[in-house]
């Protein structure tokens, strides 16, 4: 944009361009701020969310966790998917220190002291919803402590990168 400003030096039409550019700038800034407010979702781990208690109820957010496979159920009548999610750390460094994502997911679902979050979602279960999947869910926490998810995202493709083969040739 500096090009134009410079081009416009001592040009009688310069103010028109300044005004035009400024208007676009203001419009872009306005759009970014207002849309950020409209679209913002705070990102929590299960532990962080549970630690916030009731103050977390009602605000849109994303929650990270690991899926417990035997809790997955689908109710045909209400077309509701429900499952339980347990805490996993969000920080990549922590994950690496604990042996990578696959190891973290496995440890999380086996941990007897884990914190759990119940999730319901009206709609279909994605193909990637399975035991030990890393889940990012979008939605709000209900007053009874159940998380109502409007969007489910499971990161299973990861496992093709990270799970090492276990067999060995004799």
């Amino acid at each position: 944009m500096s090009t134009t400003l410079e081009t416009m030096d001592s040009n009688p039409g310069r103010s028109k361009f300044l005004v035009g550019g400024l208007l676009i700038l203001i419009a872009v800034v306005y759009l970014i701020i207002s849309s950020t407010i409209a679209g913002a979702q705070t990102y929590y781990t299960v532990d962080e969310l549970l630690a916030r208690g009731d103050s977390a109820v009602g605000t849109p957010m994303q929650v990270l966790g690991a899926v417990l496979g035997d809790t997955i159920s689908y109710d045909r009548d209400t077309q509701t998917v429900s499952f339980t999610m347990v805490h996993i750390p969000a920080d990549n460094d922590v994950v690496d220190a604990q042996g990578g994502l696959a190891a973290v997911l496995e440890a999380a679902v086996k941990d007897p002291n884990r914190q759990e979050l119940q999730v319901v979602h009206i709609g279909i279960a994605p193909d990637t919803l399975e035991h030990q999947a890393q889940a990012i869910i979008v939605g709000t926490l209900r007053e009874d402590g159940v998380f109502v998810a409007s969007e489910l995202l499971f990161k299973c493709p990861t496992k093709y990168e990270e799970v090492q083969p276990e067999q060995i040739d004799a």
Binding site: A27, S35, A38, A40, Y43, V138
Partner: peptide
Amino acid sequence: FTGQKVTVGPIYYERATGPL
């Protein structure tokens, strides 16, 4: 500034890019 990660979903992008 809570230090909690805040993401913006599709709503943000659709709203902000639509007029542009």
